[in-house]
């Protein structure tokens, strides 16, 4: 696999996805997707809209229940009925396109509610942790702000801090910058790039090609519910094998001017 070339197979596999299928009514969104994610690896998933990229992320932490197929987090089978899904989800960060910060809580409380109510952490300790994580995303001065008082970029950074405060094994990003004004995208990408460089394991659904080029160990091109092509940024951007990949990348480049 291409991932092995970029990252010669030494790190343990954190997440294993095998042959996932998911339909909504007649719409067969995922038609057998498999992938392995090693510790510290960043994979960027691209592809036309309606291809099942978001569904794939949601099926990984069971926010959508896949119709068939398996997901493992380390040795634990996520898709098994015996598994306590809440314990799994606590270890998988999820960053939403629309942020979904808790509207009635300040930035600080948004970040510390997970460690406190799920992790059972004491208030003082959780507060310290939340401060640290907010500092990490550059929002130390916004701890007392409510979501509505923050810009989209700031909200998304709080939501990244909220995910980080759970000490996740990996973080799933579902189009984290698609809902942002162009001038706010940079600050979010900056945080994500520094996470990737710090060795966070992540799957990112995004069309930010600059980001993909900078940090992706592997790019996955999905279309119509299957992985059409995957490889390092160089392989995919410079010499894509599939014609569909070429066409898609050309469109994206026209759009984003790269």
């Amino acid at each position: 696999m291409a991932a092995d070339k970029a990252n010669p197979g030494s790190d343990p596999v954190v997440l294993r996805v095998k042959d996932l299928h998911k339909s909504y009514g007649d719409n067969h969104v995922l038609r057998g997707v498999s992938m392995d994610l090693r510790r510290g690896e960043t994979k960027v998933v691209i592809g036309p809209s309606g291809t099942g990229k978001s569904t794939l992320l949601r099926c990984i932490n069971q926010l959508s229940i896949p119709d068939s197929g398996h997901v493992w987090l380390g040795d634990l089978e996520v898709t098994s009925r015996q598994t306590n899904i809440n314990k799994i989800r606590a270890q998988i960060g999820f960053v939403f396109q629309s942020f979904n910060l808790f509207t009635h809580l300040t930035a600080l409380h948004n970040v510390r509610i997970g460690p406190m109510k799920v992790g059972g952490m004491k208030k003082g300790e959780a507060t310290r942790l939340a401060m640290e994580e907010l500092e990490r995303v550059g929002l130390a001065d916004k701890v007392d702000a409510y979501p509505s008082e923050l810009s989209g970029g700031q909200q998304q950074r709080v939501s990244i801090a909220r995910a980080l405060a759970m000490f996740p094994q990996l973080i799933l990003f579902d189009e984290p910058t698609s809902a942002l004004d162009p001038e706010l995208i940079g600050e979010v990408l900056e945080v994500m790039i520094s996470l990737a460089k710090d060795g966070m394991t992540m799957i990112v659904v995004s069309h930010e090609m600059g980001f993909a080029r900078a940090v992706a160990d592997e790019i996955i091109f999905m279309e119509s519910g299957v992985v059409l092509e995957q490889g390092s940024p160089d392989e995919l951007f410079v010499r894509p094998k599939e014609q569909r990949t070429q066409e898609f990348l050309r469109k994206i480049c026209e759009l984003y001017g790269e």
Binding site: N86, R89, F96, F102, I113, G114, V118
Partner: peptide
Amino acid sequence: VPTGQMLAARSLGMSKLK
């Protein structure tokens, strides 16, 4: 209350009740 609120809470590992 927008559905995203429930999704976000569940994604942190909260049970439905929490």
